[in-house]
Design a protein around this nucleic acid. Sequence first.
DNA 1: ATCCAGATGGTC
DNA 2: ACCATCTGGATA
Length: 185
Amino acid sequence: MSNALSRDFYARPTLTVARDLLGAILCHRRGDAVLKARIVEVEAYISERDQACHARAGRTARTAVMYGPPGHAYVYLVYGMHEMLNVVTEREGSPAAVLVRGAVRLGGEPLPGPGRLTRALGIDRALDAVDLCSDRLWIEAGGLGRGERIARSPRIGIDYAGSPWVEKPWRLYVEGSVGVSRPRA
DNA sequence: ATCCAGATGGTC
DNA sequence: ACCATCTGGATA
């Protein structure tokens, strides 16, 4: 956990955190081993106004962690089978988070897609609300390589949100990376 | 290339 | 009754 990003990193505007998360290293301690993957695709979900954000319905048992202090994990299940990992951003009281959608394991194995990524790294709801400034689950500074560019697109799978939320270009990814789930959209 | 169903369960 | 998904198989 030595190089874990600090609480201050997460306590910033969600789109800024999302951008800075590209290239960062997601780390999960599994007993003796630490599984690590480089984040290459994320999506921002910002406030109760954002009709794609789970906080649109206000505070509930599930979304409570998004209302808490930044730098915590928000992990939930979708479609009965995929665990989604988000990191809570902004200050306490403003519900927002960044969904981690794609990564590349250190060693090169591509982990495109939010469901795949969590399965490969052994991340599930047991880690919901866990502090990312800890030695269980954390993120280390990474950054982009020379020549790596950030691309933007609308978020995936949120058609129900309606305009203008469906169109918001709040999905950010490293162009051309093998860890990106839908190079096209 | 696009479409679609099936798996599978929490949430509101 | 929806879903912040993914896959494999059909169609074209």
